[in-house]
Design a protein around this nucleic acid. Structure first.
Lengths: 239, 239
DNA sequence: ACCTGAACACCGTTCAAGT
DNA sequence: ACCTGAACACCGTTCAAGT
């Protein structure tokens, strides 16, 4: 694991002498990885494409990162710095409300960057910002009348729900939208039509909620689910 | 999309004439895919490996399936037949208890087959068993005093929590366990040690729950979170 | 109808060698 | 200390051709 502190030797800064050899830094590698991920998704982040954009060969990446997996882990974690910053002031209000605020901020970040879902908050050992975000969420439960076990479970549940739901929604649109053949509205309309075509005796629930489905937004659905979970936590805390 | 009904022309059945050309069926392709997934995980399911095990060339797979993605989708869905069967009799008890039973059964199936997490209940349009499982979960909410919108949200929340949490836990152990260098206990011990080494002033929550973390089981953690969500749903239904 | 052969256009990763 | 060149051992997918 060759992990050094990046010394920020960004090309083109200063001197003006013509460069023949490419030179990166850990920060620039991760920043470019994030840019590539934003443009092309997780599948688009290849070692070779990343190296090409940095102006070097594939092998150079391995100086900064042990492999593609670690690259994804670190790139995802680096983005959580922004989430952490956005919730820095949270923690003075009603604890449940604050949990909701943090959860929504994290959810929005993943909706913005669907590739985040699969890698955010995965390994607190290698992801420093994930660790701090987990801590931040957990701290809200310290202000609730719960046992340590209950706090641990409540925090895990919130994290699991937010990440799980967001990750699921991020990849929800199968192939069609990704390839630009269809937008979200068309997709919803088609799925709705398929649901209506099902036998009503065999699928009573589907028919019962098909109108809700047609109207739903991912964010509203997430918000409602999070509120149910938070209601359960509040009940347990007797608050 | 060349999707025909499989006609089950499994080799070796009947005649006894020596076969020179490989011959599959859609069912045998999916069954072998599941076997490969169980042995080697999602990364191990390559078109080439699958074809080799079926005794043919890679191109033959494309007769039964439009590509690797559809293969994963269908293989995952095929396994849900077992889950559906296991919960067929559920639906006569307390609705919340029945939701818990279905949720746990699905969770256990994903723990057994970690590759399931990323593909189960993803697209009701192409996954018939996922559709039926979603219907089954939703039907329990029909017996609760909720509005259609609330039923839709409750069902989505349960599905999201179960799949999300299970998927997360299925890939939770990063590299070390997969490569067999470390078992779960060692991993937990190391992570616990790292948590204890953190500054207590900066990470009060981590220190507060480190003992719980050291003792926790994935299933217990899942169960506790699901109960919090179900408590929220029960509260909303006034039951 | 269903499979083969062979190619196309990629991958991640390693490692000796260079600077 | 950090990067290049070049190779190794793979991939998914396509498509004309065969049976």
């Amino acid at each position: 694991m060759p992990m050094r502190e990046g010394r920020a030797a960004s090309p083109g800064a200063g001197g003006g002498r013509a460069r023949t050899r490419a030179s990166h830094s850990r920060e620039s590698v991760l920043a470019e990885a994030v840019r590539l991920l934003d443009e092309a998704g997780a599948a688009g982040l290849t070692i070779r494409a990343l190296a090409a954009r940095l102006g070097g060969g594939p092998a150079s990446i391995y100086w900064y990162v042990s492999g593609r997996d670690e690259l994804l882990d670190l790139a995802a974690d680096s983005v959580l710095a922004g989430v952490l910053d956005a919730v820095r002031a949270v923690g003075e209000g009603d604890p449940i409300d604050d949990l909701r605020t943090i959860g929504e901020t994290l959810f929005d970040a993943i909706v913005d960057r669907p590739w985040l879902g699969a890698y955010a908050l995965r390994d607190t050992g290698t992801q420093p910002h994930s660790l701090r975000l987990y801590e931040k969420i957990g701290e809200q439960t310290l202000r609730l009348a719960l046992t340590p076990t209950q706090r641990f479970h409540a925090t895990s549940a919130v994290v699991g729900f937010v990440i799980g739901t967001a990750a699921d929604m991020g990849q929800e649109l199968p192939e069609v939208v990704a390839s630009g053949q269809m937008d979200r509205e068309e997709y919803l309309a088609q799925a709705t039509a398929e649901w209506r075509a099902l036998d009503e005796g065999e699928f009573p629930f589907i028919h019962h909620v098909v109108d809700e489905f047609a109207r739903h937004t991912d964010r509203g659905q997430f918000r409602a689910g999070l509120d149910l979970l938070l209601a359960g936590i509040r009940l347990q805390a007797g608050a």
